[in-house]
Amino acid sequence: MTFTLDSSVLDSSGGLSFEETLIEGRGRGIAILWEQGDLGVDMELLGYSIRFWPAEEQPMNPRE
């Protein structure tokens, strides 16, 4: 099969994809919610990752 720029179509639909969402927050725990409520729209989730940095081992502030 020959791929020709400007004429061939490269499409990954049907396979795995991912989307990174940048967030900002500091705390002890996190919960994540995904929602899809549009008419005629599907959603199929495979998994997730959370990116974080460890902060104070003994937080000074009881809750931020």
């Binding site: 795995l16 900002e24 002890r28 549009d38 199929e44 989730l45 937080p59």
Partner: peptide
């Protein structure tokens, strides 16, 4: 559990279903 974390990002793995969107929410503490 008691150690603080600085959360910087969430990656969602999904199967594309066309030109669609979803809402992602998070609660930190």
């Amino acid at each position: 559990e008691t150690q603080e974390k600085v959360f910087a990002g969430i990656t969602t793995y999904f199967v594309p279903k066309g030109n669609t969107t979803a809402t992602i929410g998070h609660v930190i503490d």
